[in-house]
């Protein structure tokens, strides 16, 4: 536990070392937030609801998505893949510390930094300019838990596609497909509520919704009681499944590494 804490601190510090990069990111997220908010508000000139979302829900969604974009890390991540490719993974595997646990701890240190420094400010700007939905204390608490689970699901997914590097020389192709699916099916590009029914069903049957759509819906109070417990449980289930698959991949990859002699 102590070790995990130390690793997590490093995850935080890695990103805290570049305050200008953080400031630039906040600015960019804010601009994108404004653009998307106005585009989607134009939809509500024609109708008052899209699915269960009204205009305020949608705008809240836009700003939460911008606030969480770094926290749940939907873009490319290939640190593990690079370690596999240059062979450093062999050293990692020889240590008493499990690589998956290392990256999970590291990511759980990184995520709060991004939530605080990349998330709060864009959302605050959005909340000043637009009418947004605020959660009740209970919803806020559930939201915090849901975001934490979303980070784990996200890492589980990233770890899994990075592990492809054990078998492929170059994971860029895999990574591109992974990012595309994640961006689109997590609701990062467009809220899943806006999707045609069949596509929405597919998106909800996959782990990606747990990465963004679920935390945002929890904030918006779209889930209550048993339903709320249900979606959080589903997030937890995806976290376990993806981490489990990642673990299998790591084991298989390690075996392959031994056979091929690194």
């Amino acid at each position: 536990m102590r070790l995990d804490w130390e690793i997590a601190k490093r995850g935080w510090r890695r990103y805290a070392a570049y305050p200008w990069a953080t400031a630039a990111g906040v600015f960019t997220n804010t601009i994108f937030g404004f653009l998307q908010a106005y585009i989607l508000l134009a939809v509500f000139r024609h109708r008052s609801h899209v699915g269960s979302y009204d205009a305020a829900d949608t705008v809240t969604y836009v700003w939460l998505a911008q606030a969480l974009i770094m926290t749940v890390y939907v873009f490319g991540w290939q640190e593990l893949a690079l370690r596999i490719r240059d062979g450093a993974i062999a050293t990692d595997l020889s240590r008493p510390l499990d690589p998956q646990r290392y990256w999970l701890a590291f990511d759980l240190g990184r995520a709060p930094y991004h939530l605080l420094f990349r998330g709060v400010l864009p959302f605050a700007v959005g909340a000043l300019v637009f009418r947004v939905h605020y959660p009740s204390p209970l919803e806020a608490l559930a939201f915090a838990g849901s975001v934490a689970l979303a980070v784990v699901v996200s890492l589980g997914f990233r770890f899994l596609y990075n592990a492809a590097a054990f078998w492929l020389l170059d994971i860029r192709g895999v990574m591109t497909v992974a990012i595309t699916l994640n961006l689109f099916l997590s609701g990062m590009v467009m809220p899943l509520t806006f999707f045609p029914g069949w596509l929405r069903s597919i998106a909800h049957a996959l782990p990606f919704a747990s990465i963004l759509q679920t935390p945002v819906d929890v904030w918006l109070g779209k889930h209550h009681g048993a339903d709320l417990a249900g979606v959080l449980a589903l997030q937890a289930l995806w976290a376990v499944v993806l981490l489990g698959l990642g673990r299998l991949a790591l084991r298989g990859g390690a075996r392959r590494l031994v056979v091929q002699g690194g």
Binding site: L40, V43, V50, D170, T176, L183, V189, M190, F195, P196
Partner: peptide
């Protein structure tokens, strides 16, 4: 692979346009 990747990722933006117009005619 890279060519295909840059095609795919930028195409998402057009999917977003289509999703919007799934909900409104104009």
């Amino acid at each position: 692979l890279d060519l295909f990747g840059s095609f795919l990722i930028s195409f998402i933006d057009f999917l977003a346009v289509l999703v919007i117009f799934h909900n409104v005619p104009q």
